[in-house]
Amino acid sequence: MAPILDIKNLRKSYAGGFEALKGVSLQIEQGEIIALLGPNGAGKTTLISTVCGITSATSGQIKVGGHDINTDFRAARRMIGLVPQEVALEPFETVINTVKFSQGLFGKKRDIGAIEKILKQLSLFDKRNNQLKELSGGMKRRVLIAKALAHEPRVLFLDEPTAGVDVELRKDMWDIVADLKADGVTIILTTHYIEEAEAIADRVGIIANGELLLVEDKTKLMAQMGKKQLEVQLTAPLSAIPDGLVSYDLTLGPSGDALIYTYDTNAERTGITQLLNDVAKAGLSLRDVVTRQSSLEDIFVTLVKEDAA
């Protein structure tokens, strides 16, 4: 099946000569959630803005649902919903009117039932007649989502949707995203919160300096690049690693009371059994054994550092 979003060799240069996107190519399948991670200024928002028509591409091609965003912009844009990074809302307008406006703007006939359903889903129904200036920051973010969903898009862009919102609302957003995915909506989100990508994304893309460093299935990425650490905590601190254990790639914990062993989860043999046997042979007494897996954040930091180098 053809990808619902097909970006080929996308380049964007600004008037001052700054190259925000340097030949980005990306294919996204229908119904998947992809998280774009990257430091500030990496090109995440430029990429989204270009797909949505807010920024013009310098070169390259973008198709949404098979429709070119330039030659067939109406069909392409009807499929897209955008929740922008900045909370931009007309302060004196009511919640329901601003959502009605969005529905009409995207060519949909007035459908109050559909709007009320969205407002209920987003816990905004009770506030529907409130002016937007009366709402809290979190509520305003929900309104932005309601506006983006008002024309039932098939591809939803969430540009840092949970930036600056509290933990409860963030979890609510994740639930909303899960519901949308269940309805077959494709979601592309940018985020600084790596745990967010870890929690909800199917695939992860990492952008730095206008380049897409990688796009990989989240679990595969973590399996491929994830390192695991075994921490053997000792009852008595050591001043050096005992002779019987020097063949292992061990490091001594900061206080000398732990041996840290880094291993590859994909390796055929991790060497843990032999290590624990040798630790016992060395006469060391164990207090506890703890394992830790590197997070997406560690992977992200490693990749961006490698790119910078």
Binding site: L82, P84, E90, P91, S102, G107, K147
Partner: peptide, 17 residues
């Protein structure tokens, strides 16, 4: 000018219009 000022112009630019 007002949509430009408050940022809501994004919606006009991304709409099928």
């Amino acid at each position: 000018y007002f949509p430009k000022f408050i940022g809501t112009i994004y919606e006009l630019l991304s709409a099928p219009i």
